[in-house]
């Protein structure tokens, strides 16, 4: 058993094998040792003992991961994240504290969990006048570049454009749709 899980995410070896078959990015993330760390199934079980609340019923189809020291379940069938290696996109948009608090209450990352985070989000996005760009703020310079902007909620933006595009907008201020 590793002594510390701080700032690391853990996934069972069996889940890892499945995920790497599906996603080469996941494999890279694990190999880099920065965001995901392997645990054997017994290790995951030991870690989870007495710590899980709201455990999902059909665990066999879910990936068990340890994210910010919390054992959680990731539903690969969700429509927003291709794998747990993309959880940082949610964290980048929502914020570490809010995500950690949400994970402490709900241990299953699925469509409902992700949408609930964005439904409560205080930030919004904006569409350019020609609807060709999604931008992150409405200010003098942005209006000069993109024309009058139309505000859309974080949840609507999530459902229309997906997490990767939204994180790109946050990081680069604008994305061509």
């Amino acid at each position: 058993m590793r002594s510390s899980y701080s700032r690391k995410s853990v996934v069972s070896r069996q889940a890892f094998r499945k995920a790497t078959q599906r996603s080469p990015i996941f494999s890279g993330a694990v190999e880099s040792g920065q965001s995901l760390t392997l645990l054997s199934d017994p290790e995951v079980s030991q870690f989870s003992q007495g710590r899980l609340r709201n455990s999902p019923k059909s665990r066999s189809q879910l990936l068990r991961i340890l994210y910010h020291n919390q054992l959680i379940y990731f539903n690969p069938a969700n429509k927003y994240l291709t794998g747990p290696e993309q959880l940082w996109l949610i964290e980048s948009l929502i914020g570490t504290q809010i995500l950690n608090k949400a994970l402490s209450l709900g241990k299953l990352i699925d469509n409902r969990f992700i949408e609930s985070l964005f439904k409560k989000a205080t930030f919004t996005f904006f569409l350019s006048a020609d609807k060709a760009y999604l931008v992150s703020s409405d200010d003098e310079l942005t209006q000069l570049d993109f024309g009058p902007l139309t505000k859309i909620s974080a949840l609507t933006a999530l459902q229309q454009f997906g997490v990767t595009t939204l994180e790109r907008v946050k990081e680069k201020t604008a994305v061509r749709l």
């Binding site: 703020s137 200010d139 310079l141 907008v169 946050k170 990081e171 201020t173």
Partner: peptide, 15 residues
Amino acid sequence: NNQSGRFKAITIVQQ
């Protein structure tokens, strides 16, 4: 350009 989500300009004066 001014494309930084972290430190972007928001006014023409700043640009």
